[in-house]
Design a protein around this nucleic acid. Structure first.
Lengths: 346, 346
DNA sequence: GAGTCACCCCAAAGCGCTTTGAATAGGTCA
DNA sequence: TGACCTATTCAAAGCGCTTTGGGGTGACTC
């Protein structure tokens, strides 16, 4: 069933049927009703390719994930983010096209998307420092929103970011206020912009308290369970071991926790544990009343929703000024942090 | 830059340029070279909508996720699955379009996709028992592959499934062989086909060993960390408590583990823990040499790759007979299961 | 009763590509 | 030299939709 057939069926022109379906005013309510009913009855939906050819709009948003990011936690975060974004797209009739590409093909992928007009805009995930995608997309004229920011890019662009620096500064300050001075920092890969900023926050908190920086208490690695385990093993094995940890995600925290168990150390009592918490849906951090981990929390899914709104807004109104949103993370006090205690024997 | 402009630039007809780019034989190698070079230089890529209109193929695969499944673990699994599928799509020039839809709209979404011709095939995720999507897709004539199976659907269709029944039967048998008779089973939602089959496997292992079934040792809930925690609390609080657990995923196992810690029970020593392990990339189950959890393991990402291959094969050759693949999970023996021990005091 | 205005509807062009069927060159052979 | 291939290239139609620029019809005004 295509438009021509439908219009013949109704004894109307294609124009009228098209207008009726697309809500144009110059068609009477009675014919509109007749048309929409017939369309529903015969399950008519306009051909996507034809529509995009005729309108120049594809009604699709591109999400490009570099494969390398895939090995990490980013994968899980990505899932929650697109779940949020999808909600918004769905409401506005947009589809989401996801491509996972080799890093080396990534820029070419954007050029390709732009040239083929297969998407009306793109979402930029996991920005690194001086991210080359941003100037490229600006030059391509393809609307985009960055989830995060990129230090070292002076161009203007739409972004929504969590105040990663402040969030980690805050949890570190919290640990310091509890008396900790040997605080292990288990960070993500620091070429990623968010990890770079978190490092800043950690260092700034130490500096504010006059605590010397010990490189042995800082790790930068993929945000996985084993990475947390390794880091904790190393930092607890020091002659002057860590008494607390700041971790980059709940998954990393699970790895740290495994180390504590192996060493028979009790969370909260013997060692304090604070995290950045992306609110991954499968891994809730306890109940709202009784959070397990002290954390700086910010919902990835909510970010996905908002980024999608910003992007659709930009597409609807291309001359709109760029939007920048900096979200503060919520500080959640859980049972995993306590005033410093002497290490248990054993 | 479109085809017309490119052809004018080269002083060739659109036909010749199109054929040169699409590898048709009736164009000389010298002009083909000239054309491809000019196309690369001007970053020409054919307009997606026009191409799909002209060929009738959209070069896209649809992945529809019902929103309800979203709250669960399924989300994380979904991410790994599509990462695998993407690899295959990318190689063949296919794109992936993802829609997350309200459950009530799901069937309509498939009708819509088929009618609009916005995808050449779809992947069916998270089949439930007697899944209505399967007969619908069959009637729509849209090629599809089911990741899993659907008990109660007698129609023919392509599927790839893990032998969930046998996998859980095996880990349960393993626990029984270690002397456990009070084995808690923390399952996913049993309207999902995979969970239904796993239940079967659990029951069959008990039956084989002549162990009575205790409903208090069986839970069916979403596959989250808190669900594991709750189940473990309940089953360890019984007058005749569980001495071992079979869990439906590593995430659930983490919740069980939390309960054990709270109760000061040591994994492996005081309580045994076995899981189904989907090999989520962010949550590796220890190292290959030293797995933490005893588990039936099967890679979701590999399944994504294979399902994508099956689907593209079906599209390329629509008259091909349906393919059914049943994968056996690998039994991994970790340090979390041991011969039954008396409960520690305390 | 002619002119004016809404209101509703239509024919046809055009989006950028693929593909059919035909035309043009350049060689070969009798 | 002209007929006949073969190897290249081309003009034009068509995919299914939107949208421009009219046109007809009745009601209403003067």
């Amino acid at each position: 069933m295509n438009l021509r057939e439908l219009s013949e069926l109704l004894n109307l022109s294609q124009t009228t049927v098209s207008r009726a379906l697309n809500g144009y005013p110059e068609v009477s309510e009675s014919t509109r009703k007749r048309v929409t009913e017939a369309a529903a009855q015969h399950n008519y939906h306009p051909n996507a390719g034809a529509q995009s050819l005729a309108t120049g709009r594809s009604m699709a948003i591109g999400h490009v994930m570099p494969m390398s990011a895939n090995h990490e936690m980013v994968n899980v975060i990505f899932a929650d983010f697109i779940a949020g974004a999808s909600e918004i797209y769905g409401r506005s009739g947009y589809r989401m096209v996801v491509s996972m590409v080799d890093d080396k093909d990534e820029l070419q992928t954007y050029r390709d998307l732009a040239q083929r007009r297969s998407v009306d805009g793109v979402m930029v995930h996991g920005p690194v420092r001086a991210d080359p995608r941003i100037p490229l997309l600006n030059s391509l004229g393809l609307p985009f929103v960055v989830h995060g920011r990129s230090t070292g890019v002076e161009a203007e662009y739409n972004w929504l970011d969590v105040n990663n620096r402040r969030a980690i500064e805050q949890v570190t300050e919290h640990l310091i206020s509890l008396g900790h001075r040997r605080i292990g920092f288990v960070n993500g890969m620091e070429h990623m912009d968010f990890a770079f900023r978190r490092r800043d926050g950690y260092l700034s908190a130490l500096k504010g308290a006059g605590i010397p920086v010990d490189p042995a208490l800082m790790q930068s690695a993929e945000m996985t369970e084993p990475a947390g385990h390794n880091a904790a093993c190393a930092m607890l094995g020091l002659s002057d071991p860590a008494t607390a940890f700041v971790s980059s995600s709940i998954v990393v925290t699970l790895g740290i926790r495994r180390t504590l168990e192996e060493m028979n150390l009790r969370i909260g009592q013997d060692i304090s544990l604070a995290s950045f918490d992306d609110e991954i849906s499968a891994l809730p951090n306890g109940s709202p009343e009784a959070p397990i981990y002290t954390a700086a929390r910010s919902s990835v899914r909510a970010a996905g929703r908002r980024c999608a709104e910003l992007l659709l807004g930009q597409i609807a109104n291309p001359t709109r000024a760029n939007v920048h949103e900096l979200w503060e993370a919520d500080l959640i006090l859980g049972s995993s942090t306590r005033a410093i205690a002497r290490r248990r024997a054993g």
